[in-house]
Simulated assay, not measured.
Amino acid sequence: MTTVALDTGVGPLLRSWREQRRISQLELALRADSSSRHISFIETGRSRPSEEMVLRLAEHLEIPVRERNALLVVAGYAPRYAHTPLDDPAMGALREGVERLLEGYEPYPALVLDGRYDVVAANRAVAMLLDGVAEHLLVPPLNVMRITLHPEGLAPRIRNLRAWRADLLAQMRRQIALARSVQLRELYEEVAAYPLPEGDGSPEDEGGGDASLPFALPMLIEHGGHVLSFVSSIATFNTPMDVTVAELAIETFLPADRDTADLLRSLTA
C-alpha cells in the first residue's frame, strides 16, 4: 500500500506523525522515557535516533506497522516487520484459524478484509447477500466498499443507505488519517462520488431510530422479500509482527433482531 511522504528524513516524518496525533514534544518525551530536548533534536535532524528510539516513538505515536518499516529505512536501518503473503506456507496456521472462525460464524455473514478493504476470505452467508450485485463488481479482488456503495451493488437494497453510507465513509476517513495511504484516499474519493440510487428517500438518521437498538447503527438490507437487520463488528489482531497480519480485519454481522436470525438459519438449512 503506497503511503504519503510529507518530507524527507526520519525527523520531519516523526514530527508530522506527532502533529497529526496532536501530541506535544513534552508529552511524547514523557511517554517514550526521553526528554523534549532530545525529541526536538530528532525532529530537526540535529540528532540521529537509534533503531530502538525510532520503534519506541512509533509505538507511542500508534504508527501502523507498515509505516514503522518505512521510518526505519529512512533512518538508515533495516525493516523490522516482515510482509508475508497470506498464501505463504508460513501463514498456514493463521489461514486455518481464520477459516474455522468464518465457518463457525455461519449462518451469519463474516469476512476478512485487508488494508484496502479487499475481501480476503468470506463464508457462505456473505455469498448469499451478493445476489443481484453486478458482475463487474464481483471480479477479484472484491472490494467491500465498492460492492456496498455502488449503485449496481448492495446500495439499492440497503433501506437506511444514507446513514450506513455516512458511517462507512467516516470509517474510511479515520483509516486514512491513521495510515495516510494514497490508495485508500483514491478509493474514498471514488466511492464517495457514487450517486445515491434514484428514489432513495431514506433520511440521514433512518435505521438509527429503532428504540430496540440504541447501542449501534444496524444495516437494513432487503433480501428475498425480507428486510434483514445486522450490526457490524470488526476485530483485528493484537500486537501484530507482520505487515499482512497488521492490516487484516475480520468483520462479522450479528443479527439485530430475531426475525433476521431465524431467516438466516432457515436459508442455511
Rank of each mutant, 00 (worst) to 15 (best):
1 M>R: 10
3 T>N: 05
8 T>V: 09
9 G>P: 01
20 Q>P: 00
20 Q>H: 14
27 E>Y: 01
30 L>D: 12
31 R>L: 15
31 R>M: 15
32 A>T: 15
32 A>K: 08
34 S>G: 09
34 S>A: 14
35 S>N: 07
35 S>P: 08
36 S>A: 15
36 S>R: 11
37 R>M: 06
47 S>I: 00
49 P>V: 02
51 E>K: 04
51 E>D: 03
52 E>S: 12
54 V>P: 05
56 R>I: 04
65 V>K: 03
66 R>A: 14
70 A>L: 15
70 A>E: 10
73 V>F: 05
76 G>M: 00
79 P>G: 03
80 R>A: 10
80 R>Y: 02
82 A>N: 05
86 L>Y: 12
86 L>Q: 03
88 D>S: 12
89 P>Y: 04
90 A>R: 14
98 V>K: 04
100 R>K: 14
103 E>M: 10
105 Y>T: 08
108 Y>E: 09
109 P>N: 10
110 A>Q: 09
111 L>F: 15
111 L>I: 09
113 L>M: 10
113 L>R: 05
114 D>L: 07
114 D>H: 08
116 R>H: 10
121 A>W: 03
122 A>F: 11
122 A>C: 10
122 A>N: 04
127 A>H: 13
129 L>K: 02
129 L>R: 06
130 L>Y: 05
131 D>L: 01
137 L>A: 06
138 L>N: 03
142 L>I: 15
142 L>C: 05
145 M>S: 10
145 M>H: 05
145 M>L: 14
147 I>V: 15
149 L>E: 04
150 H>A: 09
150 H>V: 07
151 P>D: 09
151 P>S: 06
152 E>Q: 15
153 G>M: 06
154 L>A: 12
158 I>W: 11
161 L>H: 08
162 R>T: 13
163 A>G: 01
170 A>W: 02
173 R>Q: 15
179 A>F: 11
181 S>T: 03
183 Q>F: 00
185 R>G: 06
186 E>I: 00
187 L>G: 02
192 A>P: 05
192 A>L: 00
198 E>F: 14
198 E>K: 09
199 G>N: 10
202 S>T: 14
203 P>H: 13
205 D>F: 09
206 E>Y: 14
207 G>H: 12
209 G>V: 07
213 L>K: 13
214 P>S: 10
216 A>S: 13
216 A>L: 12
217 L>P: 07
217 L>I: 06
218 P>E: 03
218 P>K: 08
219 M>S: 10
224 G>I: 07
228 L>W: 02
230 F>R: 02
232 S>T: 11
233 S>R: 09
237 F>H: 06
244 T>W: 00
244 T>S: 00
247 E>Y: 01
249 A>E: 10
253 F>W: 14
254 L>I: 08
258 R>H: 07
259 D>F: 06
260 T>Q: 09
260 T>H: 04
260 T>P: 07
262 D>C: 04
262 D>R: 09
262 D>Y: 01
265 R>A: 13
269 A>N: 11
